[in-house]
């Protein structure tokens, strides 16, 4: 079964940079896949192509089991500064013209699920960086997506907050049966969070390694430091080094 499939995708930017060349991979339903590579290797471009926010120059992006509802989380929280947490989380439903009362209830429960119950009326400027990212996560979940695309969502956060959000993301993934494509440049993050790591080479971006991880071993209480996670990090780093990137 395949939820998302990219085959031989190429993308050149208007300034002439070949961002992606011959990029092919598939994501199965319910999978947690990391797209790992150094800055500027085109991972964000790949994510935007998957979300149909960009069109490829050649190749195909398909959803064999039908186009799923997609949630997207950016590196920055990307909230509306004039709107409170509730209105920000509700935005996707508002854009779909969902009934207001129902939309408000769903936005409130999405905020509660990311640990922001009681902060419905708070404006983004009144929230910490981690809490803003949680609002952004609630907004991505509110329309009940099948596929969640995350573009280095925790890169701008401190390590403690990043670890908490990572744990929360895993919980939401399990509870909702989400399919997650997670773009990151952190080896340890991809090793701990994902079931599969796709390693990308820079300019033009393409996939050099597809590493399956034994996640049952890794995700114990102290999973980040478990031998399985450390071993996964070593394998991922080796693949990155093989790809010619400095880690």
């Amino acid at each position: 079964m395949t939820l998302l499939s990219l085959s031989a995708v190429a993308k050149r930017f208007s300034n002439g940079t070949q961002a992606l060349r011959d990029l092919s991979f598939t994501v199965a339903p319910g999978e947690f896949v990391s797209l790992l590579g150094p800055s500027g290797c085109g991972k964000s471009t790949a994510l935007r192509l998957a979300a149909n926010l960009l069109a490829p120059d050649s190749g195909a992006i398909t959803f064999p089991t039908g186009k799923p509802e997609i949630g997207f989380v950016f590196q920055e929280p990307t909230l509306m500064p004039w709107a409170d947490a509730l209105a920000n989380a509700r935005l996707p439903l508002d854009l779909q013209n969902a009934p207001r009362g129902q939309a408000t209830d769903r936005a409130a429960s999405a905020l509660a699920r990311v640990g922001l119950a009681g902060f419905e009326r708070a404006l983004p400027r009144e929230l910490s960086g981690g809490m803003r990212m949680r609002v952004s996560l609630a907004r991505a979940l509110v329309a009940r997506p099948k596929l969640l695309l995350l573009d280095e969502p925790f890169a701008a956060l401190d390590e403690i907050t990043r670890a908490q959000l990572g744990d929360d993301l895993l919980r939401l993934w399990r509870e909702d049966g989400l399919t997650i494509l997670f773009v990151t440049h952190s080896v340890s993050e991809s090793a701990f969070l994902s079931q599969r790591v796709l390693v990308m080479t820079p300019r033009p971006g393409t996939i050099t390694a597809d590493i399956a991880l034994d996640t049952d071993l890794a995700r114990t209480r102290d999973g980040r430091l478990s031998p399985a996670t450390i071993e996964a990090q070593r394998a991922i780093s080796a693949a990155l080094n093989g790809a010619g990137a400095l880690v």
Partner: peptide, 8 residues
């Protein structure tokens, strides 16, 4: 982009 993704 987010608004377009949700069909605005």
């Amino acid at each position: 982009d987010l608004a377009r993704l949700h069909g605005a």
